[in-house]
Write a protein that binds this DNA or RNA. Structure first.
Lengths: 209, 209
DNA sequence: TCGGCGCTTGAACGTCCATTCAAGCCATGC
DNA sequence: GCATGGCTTGAATGGACGTTCAAGCGCCGA
């Protein structure tokens, strides 16, 4: 029963608590209790509480691929379905936590109104990465989507759907809003696929304006 | 120069500060300083700080029509353009505050992970109202949109676009994400209008499946 | 003129918070 | 066997926080 090193226990404890209660509502004592450590240990590794947050955000950044995308995309090859599989993994988190646990990055982003530069930058990087992965799915969908579709713009919209769905579901304590958000996105992507398909047929028929 | 009554000054001060720095980061002292009042006065009107928040959320609930929608919709009659006019008013708030001030309801909703029932309910009501107004626009758009379109679902998506756009823009400190979100929504609604128009033409031509 | 009352004053209170620190532990290298 | 240095211990510190309260002010009806 080899315990993790103290530093890691602290970061994991903080990650859990920041996600559950938010950054401001989590005290250093909370982290220490959860990690089974003492104040001196924490301050041996981290100058301030904010540096713990930075370490947590760093871990999210590194973990997005192996911890979030890989499990969500297991057995899902279709690039468009991967987007909905990703959204489904957030739905699951909401479901098993009674609509309490959503996206920790989003919570922290809205909780800290004027975050210090290192924190803001890491939040920004995390969003960029997430959007980048969704954008790649949309690019991989190739000509199934309209050729002139701005795929980064659409990826940003997907992040909105997730974050907005989480926000509303947590507030209403029902999954309805999340499901409605995803259904709205599904309708949009369906229509994009139809338009692309129609566009290809027209092109094949030599029709132009 | 008749000052407002103390209770109102307190609520307005709290509204301003909660919007700027969030609920948890705003101290009672901050509110007192901003309102020019003393602790005893605040606690004469409100049992706790949380009751000030309740009063603020109540004021938002009452103010959504006269303070938010009316100015945003001045001179805009088209129901679909009203949706974009509403989004534009949030964009303006982001713009003049250097991407700091977004939607206070959304911030508080994510900041308080387990809000006490009265607070959660008021957040919920505020969201419902907002979605309801957008839904009414979509209903007023009538047959310009597909007959089978779920207009509440679409209204929820519009709220996502706003909240998600605000969240990303505040994090990146650029309006790009907000603009991309709105552009994505515009593309979706354009396609819905096209589909409805095509549907009407088919129906007029007596075409069926 | 006076009493009552809504409201104000601002110091004081206890709690909790992030952070510090002197002391100690223990594995390692000598 | 001993010194070194990374890590731990947990009590202490000072400040900020939400909240309380005894005292006072000033308006108004009697």
């Amino acid at each position: 029963m080899d315990e993790l090193p103290t530093r890691d226990r602290l970061v994991f404890a903080a990650m859990k608590l920041f996600g559950e209660k938010g950054y401001l509502s989590t005290s250093v004592q909370d982290i220490l209790r959860e990690a089974g450590a003492n104040a001196g240990s924490l301050y041996h590794f981290f100058p301030t509480k904010q540096d713990v947050l930075v370490a947590v955000l760093d871990m999210y950044r590194e973990g997005i691929e192996p911890m979030l995308l890989a499990p969500a995309w297991e057995g899902v090859d279709d690039p468009i379905e991967r987007i909905f599989a990703l959204l489904a993994s957030y739905r699951r988190a909401l479901e098993i936590s009674d609509c309490l646990y959503g996206c920790p990055i989003g919570s922290i982003a809205l909780e800290l109104h004027e975050p210090d530069p290192p924190v803001r930058e890491l939040l920004s990087v995390n969003f960029h990465q997430w959007v980048g992965h969704v954008e790649r799915c949309l690019i991989e969908a190739g000509e199934r989507l309209p050729a002139d579709l701005d795929r980064r713009q659409t990826a940003i919209l997907v992040l909105n759907v997730m974050e907005g769905g989480v926000m509303q579901s947590r507030t209403h304590r029902t999954l309805d809003a999340f499901d409605a958000s995803v259904a709205g996105l599904r309708d949009y992507l369906d229509r994009l696929e139809q338009a692309a398909s129609a566009g290809r047929n027209n092109a094949a028929g030599g029709h132009d304006g």
